[in-house]
Design a protein around this nucleic acid. Structure first.
Lengths: 238, 238
DNA sequence: TCAGTTTTTGACGGTTCGTCAAAGGAAGGT
DNA sequence: ACCTTCCTTTGACGAACCGTCAAAAACTGA
């Protein structure tokens, strides 16, 4: 029956509407400044209808975070296709992450909001699994590049450091820096004006420390950065 | 008058009691699982009395986080007195942080809880200032060691990287790693069994990348770690 | 013992959450 | 045109929690 098909589509569409409206409200007034009643009102539906789609506010944030990870993933995919050496391609991933944080800082925040235990407890395992899967594919791209570097002979990790370990290190450094810069006054003042530059510099130091060739001193990475921006993110206004 | 003096002491003592009880409850049931009524009940005081000390739950968490930073600071101070080269002393700081995270993971969580905007908005500027000051002194110790390294000729940072930048990098890497390991399932699986070892290894790579002497390859840092543990944290059971 | 002062209490109004019985509406049959 | 059945939408409602504040209790010194 064609009708039920149409209805299904309408439902899905409404899910998108709710997310869009909620996103705007969260950005305007913060997580705690938004009530389900207000979301319902802004959607021009009643509360019960909203609850039909999402069993609570936390699930909405989770869905928003999942959308954000999806967009990050597509940025990573573009970056991974950059034509260059393994270390240059990793740099492209770093730039993709930076673009995401810079252009959609609010979505980066949704990602961070997932912390408080309230989230974990109230969100259905299904949705959590969905989210984890998306994150997984982002990490897979990074790990893939690390492995490429190893198999091409650009990178020789110590015996006690796996490709995953290494990916974790880069992730920690990058995420930690953006997170602290966004949440901690003191860290913000330490980082100085341009966190993105700082992160790039530190990531290079980390890669140098593990001997990922070409080393920072032996290559014009400023030029690489420019090429990444021109080729991978031509639409980005900086 | 001696009486008012005694009362002041009693009040202070009660503040400590409230914090201890609240800490236990938060650990048991999470931030959202604890109500002011429950805290009051567990303290065997009425709600009004609790509100006389703390105007809301957020302030309690903030106070707990501040206590945690204080303890971290005293660990840092001990670590900074370690007899050794500048890089070894920095390693002692890293070990101090690791000890804190390992031994009091719940307090590390209080530190992280400060994120949600709800906190910032509801907590008095005074208490926030107090917290910031404590963090400040922790960072001061780290920056001091970096500067020592520079002045002793062990470390020569590039022109565009300040001592603060560098401290920020180490902080990001370390904090990011422990934070992710604690909050993100995927990250936990990447990090492997021993995050502390991973963080040490990555921090060494970062320091190597900036050329902080002695380099990882030219020094027995396993031995240094052992000495740090013996001398600085003899009470720690690992 | 008592009046004055301080501290403690818990009932209360206000807000938000999440539910659910009832109202509303579409599709199909007579 | 009207009715029946089934699905969707609604918003009033109970429960939980917050933070306040007037009244009660406790304490103080005379």
């Amino acid at each position: 029956m064609a009708v039920s098909e149409r209805k299904r589509r309408e439902l899905e569409q409404r899910e998108g509407l709710i997310l869009d409206v909620a996103r705007r409200l969260f950005i305007e007034r913060g997580f705690h400044g938004v009530t389900m009643d207000r979301i319902a009102e802004a959607c021009e539906y009643s509360k019960g209808t909203i609850y039909g789609h999402f069993p609570n506010k936390e699930e909405i944030v989770f869905a928003l975070a999942t959308r954000a990870v999806h967009r990050t993933h597509s940025l990573f995919e573009r970056a991974a296709r950059f034509q260059g050496g393994s270390r240059e391609r990793m740099m492209a991933i770093g730039e993709a992450y930076a673009q995401f944080v810079r252009r959609e800082p609010e979505d980066f925040r949704f990602w961070q909001m997932l912390r408080p235990d309230a989230m974990r407890d109230k969100v259905s395992p299904d949705r959590q699994q969905l989210f984890l899967g998306s994150e997984q594919s982002c990490v897979a791209i990074v790990s893939g590049i690390v492995r490429d570097g190893i198999s091409h002979g650009d990178l020789a990790l110590p015996d006690d450091v796996t490709a995953d370990d290494f990916a974790f290190g880069l992730w920690s450094l990058t995420f930690g820096a953006y997170f602290l810069d966004d949440s901690n006054e003191l860290a913000k003042s330490l980082a100085g004006r341009d966190v993105f530059r700082a992160v790039r510099r530190h990531a290079h130091a980390l890669m140098d420390g593990y001997g990922w060739k070409p080393l920072f001193a032996n290559w014009d990475f400023e030029d690489t950065l420019q090429r990444i921006r021109d080729e991978v993110f031509p639409d980005a206004r900086l």
